[in-house]
């Protein structure tokens, strides 16, 4: 894996190099600033497979550098691990919104650092496999199953499932504030999937993701599509909106054809919004069962309202304070 590590502190650069090389990552390029990183990216014969970028640097800071990297088509999906001594939520959120996929804090724990790089390595391999499958001549024959995630790009607050899990682990690690997760199911996506090409399905899922993201503006929540018509939303618990409010907004917006349009399958859309689930006190940092619980919370809605939008929302559609 070819890595570009960017930090203005020479000793940190050496530390990164020593740690990465000892763990078998020997193709490492170092840059001392955002500007130096851009020069090295331009000059690279073969593209980098991962970036490690310090947030706070003189001149161009790491968040601006991530934005510029993400604007380059070949680096849209490349893992970016932010490295910084600042662990405030604001910095973490800004880094993820700019396109970071993970985050490590200084001072480094070498085991933790390598864990993050191995996760980046895994993410990069998965992205490559998915791109190769899509680029293949017969990819329509291998249309992804309904239960599989769909790649969505360039929606503010939208992240892939792997990145969402990284974000959750960091938030749990920082213990800065209580986080909560809730799931949204758009059941009609199953019909859209059955009756349209994979490309058309991806367009519709992207439209729906954008509507959900717009609905959650101001809540600092991140959204991810996990497959089977289900979107997972994670954010500060106290800022998450009431389920009923989300559902009403979604019902209106999803049925605005300027916002969500499906050429192949004519359908109205509905949305089921589950109750919020939170990590339990004694759960470990990497224990992400509360995300599964958020998805499970949708099942009770399905049992009661199998056809979609329920008429009376109050009862089992528990409020987010549940």
């Amino acid at each position: 894996m070819k890595i570009l590590a960017v930090d203005d502190d020479e000793l940190i650069r050496e530390l990164l190099l020593a740690t990465l090389e000892a763990h078998g990552y020997t193709d490492v390029t170092l840059a001392e600033s955002g500007e130096d990183a851009l020069r090295k990216i331009s000059a690279a014969g073969t593209p980098f497979d991962a970036f490690m970028i310090d947030i706070q640097m003189p001149g161009m800071d790491g968040i601006e550098l991530v934005r510029l990297v993400r604007d380059m088509s070949r680096y849209r999906e490349t893992p970016v691990v932010m490295i910084t001594a600042m662990n405030q939520k604001d910095y973490i959120d800004r880094a993820f919104l700019a396109g970071a996929t993970d985050y490590v804090t200084k001072p480094f724990d070498t085991t933790e650092l390598i864990t993050r790089i191995r996760l980046a390595d895994k993410l990069q391999s998965e992205t490559r496999r998915a791109s190769a499958a899509l680029a293949g001549p017969h990819h329509e024959k291998h249309k992804p199953a309904y239960g599989e995630p769909v790649a969505i790009e360039e929606i503010k607050g939208y992240v892939s499932n792997g990145v969402l899990q990284n974000y959750v682990m960091i938030m749990k690690d920082q213990k800065q504030l209580a986080i909560g997760a809730f799931a949204i199911r758009v059941p009609e996506l199953e019909r859209v999937h059955a009756g349209s090409s994979s490309e058309e399905f991806a367009y519709v899922v992207t439209d729906v993701a954008e509507v959900i993201s717009d609905t959650l503006v101001g809540t600092q929540a991140f959204v991810s599509y996990i497959g089977a018509g289900v979107f997972l939303c994670v954010g500060p618990k106290r800022m998450l909106p009431e389920a009923e409010t989300v559902q009403d907004h979604l019902f209106t917006m999803l049925n605005d054809s300027d916002l969500v349009y499906c050429e192949d399958v004519a359908t109205n859309f509905s949305a089921q919004v589950g109750a919020v689930s939170s990590p339990k006190l004694l759960e470990r940092r990497d224990d992400l069962r509360f995300l599964e619980r958020a998805v499970s919370n949708l099942h009770s809605i399905q049992r009661h309202h199998p056809l979609g939008r329920p008429s009376g929302l109050a009862g089992h559609l528990a409020s987010h304070a549940a």
Binding site: L11, A18, H23, T111
Partner: peptide
């Protein structure tokens, strides 16, 4: 012993960290 590394790699890493520590001092 550094977690997850064989003896040679661990020695290489420890030597690298010692050099960085000396430079810091």
């Amino acid at each position: 012993m550094v977690h997850g590394l064989d003896a040679n790699s661990a020695a290489q890493l420890n030597a690298g960290l010692a050099r960085i520590r000396e430079r810091f001092i």
